[in-house]
Design a protein around this nucleic acid. Structure first.
Length: 623
RNA sequence: GGACCUGUGGUGCAGCUUGGAGUGCACGCCGGCCUGUCAAGCCGGAGGCCGCGGGUUCAAAUCCCGUCAGGUCCGCCA
């Protein structure tokens, strides 16, 4: 923890001897030199007001925690300058464009009571300017920095520095800096060693597409940027590091989403030796609890509830349920299967199908097209969707099911879902997993539509017992469903005895408010178990050795059992800040097509550069 | 790899459904007036390849096809 408040680090220089936002009535009468941007001008002809704005910096009025707040709010950063005609300063300021950088000398004056501006921290005073120095003048801006008007993403990214001057973005970056400090301080205090791992490494055969870096010294050979420091952290465990962490850059050449930055992102990468799943859970809950209590006013119930992957799918129709609201998928296979005339339900058991049902609150008045959309989504998952509407006035039940089911059967549906007048019941029939997934999609949509989620809640949960393998639909082979280095539950015996589809791994996710924050596992540190695990996925021993030589070799020399996790740093912060898009928490993000609109990356290079790297471009665009 | 939404003076939008003169709003910009504003105000003005290309039509910002750009989603992300 710092000994001084960051505001005390301010050192007067030729540009300024105090911050604009720091002026208070106690400064009245003193001569000050200020520097900043011309934030607004109000020219009355015979009198000119100017709001001078500081860069975002520490605020002496706010308490310092772990490195201090940054003052990002516009109203805390400006002071009003007063200029009178006759001196050169007035004429110069009158001509100067907004966002020019200036340094002024003047006297702090008390504002008349009627002219106090309560919105500004400095609103009780103003500065009578005696001299003005233009440090740099601004051209007409591509968009307004001052106003809080909406600006399109494209313009914001192209002029990211101007977007930052608007304030909120820098405020978030300041909070992100504090987030990083909290993580570092906390994990260090828990015995985790912060270690950097290489950024230039080797391509890994598993996972996402790699970013490659051609080697100049070795024609035809490439480095790869790490998708995650997965193997390095495991090697650290073998090397005798008891606990490791790193706010690690990760690079994946995959399509982006609103919550997924293209190209690069950061993970709080953690790993612990001689540790179990429980040890990881405890450390993560401590870390998250610490960070949330410091940075958020929201409640984060702890310990985090745990759901098996199978239960999450069955009850919420997703492996990343939003637990800020209830609304669960009910299994009514036993209630309706084989007991009704309706073939879809009647034949379900013998076809191996499940019947799932879910309440649609206030669904009685939903449009036909809303239900059709659900039915279509169910159909695309190989299921049949149908519904029952219960009018609010207690009138006759409607919807396709009302014409096919007996009163008793409909009663079973209503009882299982807890539907009442004004609600609807949705049903989905098909393979158990698909039937639940179809309802899971609607569950999210309903939650959004009706605002069911408690806005003051960070509903963390653990999803545990992920399946080790999943069947590849195209090849019929077994693929690793997650991390191939995860320890299968039951070890070698399970691998030998069980059907691969029934094997679960010590593999877990942290989910918060419907967003996957993190994935981790107890690692498979036993070569013989690894060999068998990979064999099921079609890997020979030679291929493991070739693909992961460092790990394979290291595990011959007494690797400790170890486990870890890697919470997404940007994504976690995005959820903390309630931001709808991950770009909002990144200083210089790529756009959704992985282009840097500010710097112009990616870009062609010269033929000379290509030649030096032994590369030839054969694609449609040649430099 | 696929689907959808958007593209209109510098910025943000309306106009498009039902084709009829670049028609409108807010901000910005330029000029003028103005001594207490704080998103200052008032008056005046400039600024448009309606993303681009093609088609339909007497006539296209508007309808159709293609393309480019931005965004959202599916696939993908061990």
């Amino acid at each position: 923890m710092p000994d001084t408040h960051p505001s005390e680090a301010f050192v007067p220089n030729r540009y300024r001897d105090t911050r604009c936002g720091a002026l208070r009535p106690s400064d009245v009468g003193s001569q000050v030199r200020l520097a900043g941007w011309v934030s607004a001008k109000r020219d009355h002809g015979g009198l000119l007001f100017c709001d001078l704005r500081d860069p975002a910096g520490p605020d002496s009025d706010l308490p310092s925690h772990d490195g201090g707040y940054l003052r990002g709010d516009h109203n805390d950063r400006v002071v009003q300058l007063v200029l009178h005609p006759g001196d050169g300063a007035f004429e110069t300021m009158a001509r100067l464009r907004l966002e020019s950088a200036v340094s002024v000398t003047g006297t702090v004056a008390q504002r008349p009571a009627a002219n106090v501006n309560p919105k500004l921290s400095t609103g009780q005073v103003e500065v009578e300017v005696s001299s003005l120095e233009v440090l740099s003048s601004a051209e007409v801006l591509p968009f307004s920095v001052e106003r809080e008007s909406e600006v399109g993403d494209e313009a914001r990214l192209t002029y990211r520095y101007l977007d930052m001057r608007r304030g909120p973005l820098v405020e978030r970056l300041a909070k992100r800096a504090r987030f990083a400090q909290l993580v570092r301080a906390h994990l260090s205090s828990r015995g985790f060693l912060e270690i950097q791992t290489p950024v230039l490494t080797v391509s890994s055969p598993e996972g996402a597409r790699d970013y490659l870096v051609p080697s100049r010294l070795y024609p035809g050979e490439f480095y790869a940027l790490p998708q995650a420091p997965q193997q390095f952290k495991q090697l650290l465990m073998v090397g005798g590091v008891e606990r490791y962490f790193q706010i690690a850059p990760c690079f994946r050449d995959e399509a982006s989403r609103a919550d997924r930055s293209p190209g690069e992102f950061y993970q709080i990468d953690m790993e612990m030796a001689f540790a179990t799943q429980e040890d990881v859970f405890r450390e993560v809950e401590l870390l998250f609890g610490h960070v949330v209590s410091a940075l958020s006013t929201k409640r984060a119930p702890s310990p985090f509830p745990r759901l098996s992957y199978a239960d999450a799918i069955a009850r919420y129709g997703t492996d990343k349920p939003d637990l800020r609201f209830g609304l669960e998928v009910a299994d009514v296979t036993a209630d309706l299967g084989g007991r009704t005339e309706l073939p879809m339900f009647a034949e379900a058991p013998q076809r191996g199908n499940a019947i799932r049902a879910m309440l649609a609150p206030k669904g009685a008045d939903r449009s036909r097209s809303w239900f059709d959309t659900f039915a279509e989504a169910a159909r695309s998952g190989g299921c049949t969707g149908s519904w029952l509407q219960l009018p609010a006035d207690g009138g006759e039940w409607k919807g396709p099911l009302s014409r096919k089911l007996t009163a008793e059967e409909m009663g079973a549906l209503v009882a299982a879902t807890g539907a009442g007048p004004g609600d609807a019941v949705l049903t989905s029939v098909g393979p158990a997993r698909s039937a639940s997934l179809a309802l899971g999609q609607v569950r999210s949509a309903i939650g959004r539509d009706l605002g069911l989620a408690d806005p003051d809640l960070l509903a963390f949960c653990w999803i545990v017992d992920f399946p080790m393998y999943e069947r590849n639909e195209e090849t019929g082979q077994w693929d690793f469903s997650h991390n191939p280095f995860s320890m299968p539950q039951g070890g070698l015996e399970a691998l030998e005895a069980k059907d691969p589809g029934d094997i679960v791994a010590y593999q877990y996710d942290v989910v918060c408010n419907g967003i996957e924050l993190s994935s981790g596992a107890v690692r498979n540190h036993l070569p013989e178990v690894m060999e068998k695990a990979f064999a099921i996925a079609g890997y020979s021993r030679e291929r493991i050795e070739r693909s992961f030589p460092a790990l394979w070799n290291a595990f011959r020399y007494g690797p400790p059992p170890h486990a870890g996790i890697a919470p997404g740093f940007d994504r976690f912060f995005m959820v903390l800040e309630d931001q709808p898009n991950i770009r909002e928490v990144i200083a210089f993000p790529l756009n959704q097509a992985a282009r840097d609109l500010l710097m112009g990356a990616p870009a062609p290079v010269t033929p000379g550069q290509l030649a030096e790297l032994h590369l030839q471009v054969v694609g449609p665009k040649k430099p």
